[in-house]
Amino acid sequence: MATLEVTGLEKSFGGVRAVQGVSFSVAPGEMLALIGPNGAGKSTCFNMLNGQLRPDAGAVRLLGQDITGLAPRQVWRLGVGRTFQITATFGSMTVLENVQMALLSHHRRLGGLWRPVARMDAAPARALLERLGMADQAARPCGILAYGDLKRVELAIALANEPKLLLMDEPTAGMAPQERVSLMALTAQIARESGIAVLFTEHDMDVVFSHADRILVLDRGRLIAKGAPAVVRADPRVREVYLGSGAVTGAH
């Protein structure tokens, strides 16, 4: 069964049809990229999947269960991890505490008034950071972390509730080329190992074409192409609205 199945998704804002009739699915362990020009509806689409926006029509199914219109925190509880285009972490907490928070929330232990956080879920949090190569930064406040490292912390947070689906909004925006490749390679490795389905949007075509198993292309709210990277890259319509001649993507 597909991890995520989206059918006939629609959303309008004040008469403007931002997303129209979008359908696709993501399989366990698959890396699916969603690309398209600015304003094509990628973010709207994303926000409907994790519950920040309620679709006007259509359905979102996670492992067969209908999750359309649930609040983000309910969607998360069902096993959907999320990273943001502009990293969102708790700046007044250390890297370790950030991951601990996700674990504590996952174990529904956030109501505690007495036992200090310092002694709760520290070991599994450390293990997660270890996996992402962030163990040596565990004690540093997130507020002063380098951007690339923050992206890794976000990934650790997103993995804390053992998700079945990861939604990553421009996971490598603002990172250096080398970091981009290594972060996405790590993501792909984890996804395959744990059978996590990954849906990501991305502007860096190097990242998209080297890490995506399949690609969806969105333009003016509609899917204009989907398929394997080579097929999408050769699609004349995709080149016209998005990819261009290839002069600035290194794909002559």
């Binding site: 925190r73 999320r82 700046g91 200090p116």
Partner: peptide, 28 residues
């Protein structure tokens, strides 16, 4: 003071630091 060091106090700070992230990890 104790509450601030406990999960509830951390959850308070979490929603202050980033409402987006707090909601995304299931914090109401």
């Amino acid at each position: 003071r104790r509450v601030v060091h406990a999960p509830f106090g951390y959850a308070l700070r979490a929603q202050r630091d980033s409402a987006l992230r707090a909601e995304a990890i299931g914090i109401d």
